[in-house]
Nucleic acid binder design. Structure first.
Length: 120
DNA sequence: CATATGACACTAT
DNA sequence: AATAGTGCCATAT
């Protein structure tokens, strides 16, 4: 099932309002990643002071309500690989390229330079 | 409380 | 460089 939250249509389990909280924080930070840059699951976890929760971050993004409005396609693996995407990595790659992020195979080019970690 | 799961990350081969 | 193991965390049941 789906429900609404701050203008977004969210899917099932990561429901907000009963004290939960990771998913909406994840979305909030994801929205800060500028076009043409990328970040990582672990970086988002760390920014939330939950280092090590990278898998949980991925789980939250998997249920991304409304991609690409919430630009979860800009969240990639720490080693520079593109990583997964609910709508398929082809789509993720296409979206990244559209933002001038060059992708070679499953790797982000100039990864360290594209990396955004300056979350607030 | 125990077990299962996943769009991760790190270490050791 | 590529693969395999292992550990992690938040949620769900």
């Amino acid at each position: 099932m789906t429900f609404r939250y701050r203008g977004y249509s969210l899917k099932s389990d990561f429901r907000i309002g009963k004290g939960n909280g990771l998913a909406d924080e994840v979305y909030r930070l994801t929205l800060q990643i500028p076009e043409g840059r990328v970040s990582t699951y672990g970086a988002i976890a760390a920014a939330l002071r939950k280092e090590g929760a990278s898998r949980a971050v991925g789980k939250a993004l998997h249920l991304n309500p409304d991609s690409p409005r919430i630009p979860c396609h800009r969240v990639v693996y720490r080693d520079g690989r593109v990583g997964g995407y609910a709508k398929g990595i082809e789509m993720k790659t296409r979206l990244l390229r559209k933002e001038c992020v060059s992708v070679e195979g499953d790797r982000i080019q100039n990864f360290e330079r594209m990396l955004f970690v300056d979350f607030t």
